[in-house]
Amino acid sequence: MSRGRAWHLGVAVLATAAVVFQLVLVWQGGTVLDETDPPDLGERVIRFFGYFTVLSNILVAWVAWTIALDRDTDTAGWRTLRLTSLVAITVTGVVHWFLLRPLLDLSGADYLADKLLHLAVPLVAVIGWAVFGPRGRVQGRDVVASLAFPVVWLSYTLLRGAITGFYPYPFLDVDAEGYAAVSVVSLGIAVLFVGVAAVAWKGDERVAKRQ
């Protein structure tokens, strides 16, 4: 196995383990985003899979497994999935560091799971992309296609929040912050998402030409 595939195998194992570890904690009633009064099991699981962080880690694991097992194919679907996972996990790390980390007061296993999902996986995933590739597989239309994931996720989150009153992140809580504030934050994150996707596209293009 090449060093690149070995690295991606490590990313796949780490991301998978992080998601499973957090799911076990949620199943046992552990805190997510420092909840003080966790709901019943069914609602906890639904909320778990509604977190952008969790979905981003699942996407990273999926893509990393395909690369590690030599199942990565240069198709529009795979390219979009890979770019989406890279941008989503990068945004996850940035948003966590600047917006969520100051709000959290976790300890023990909950603290470890939080750091794995928000810091460790984003770091190794970005390093894997930057150092090992594979290269030359990002196209301009993939950048546009990659925006479908955050748009669908945000639409679902706001719609479910309006129905249930639960929002996975404080800065999206319309009841507490109002639509104007949430719109500003969402726009800022959208700009970040597009910016990271564009950098990944052009960066991949430039490195591919040098190889």
Rank of each mutant, 00 (worst) to 15 (best):
Y179S: 15
V199E: 07
P134D: 07
S85D: 03
V131S: 01
L172I: 06
Y167W: 09
T36R: 15
F48I: 13
V94Q: 06
Q22Y: 14
A190M: 05
Y169V: 00
I58H: 12
P170R: 02
Y169P: 04
R82G: 01
R135S: 10
R5G: 00
F171T: 09
L154E: 02
V63I: 05
T157M: 06
Q139I: 10
Y51R: 00
A120R: 13
L147K: 09
D142E: 11
A17M: 13
V191G: 00
F149L: 05
P168S: 03
S56E: 10
A181S: 04
T157W: 06
R206H: 03
I163Q: 15
R79P: 04
L25Y: 01
P39I: 11
P102Q: 12
V121F: 01
A113H: 08
I67V: 08
V45C: 01
D40Q: 13
P38D: 14
V54P: 10
I127L: 04
L187Y: 06
I89Y: 07
V131D: 00
Y169F: 04
A181G: 10
T75I: 03
P122G: 03
T53H: 01
W65P: 09
T16I: 07
V207A: 01
V94L: 04
P168E: 04
K115E: 05
G108N: 10
L104M: 12
R82Y: 03
V87S: 08
D37W: 15
L23W: 11
G161F: 13
A120C: 14
V20M: 08
M1T: 15
G133D: 03
P150K: 07
G4I: 04
F149M: 13
P39F: 09
S186V: 12
T80G: 04
D114S: 01
V19K: 02
G133L: 05
P150D: 09
A208G: 00
A64E: 08
R137T: 14
F166L: 08
R5P: 09
D74C: 02
E35D: 11
K209Y: 02
F21I: 14
R210Q: 05
P168G: 00
T31N: 10
V94F: 03
L9E: 10
G178K: 01
S186A: 14
D72Q: 14
Q28V: 00
L103K: 08
Y111I: 04
S183D: 00
T157I: 07
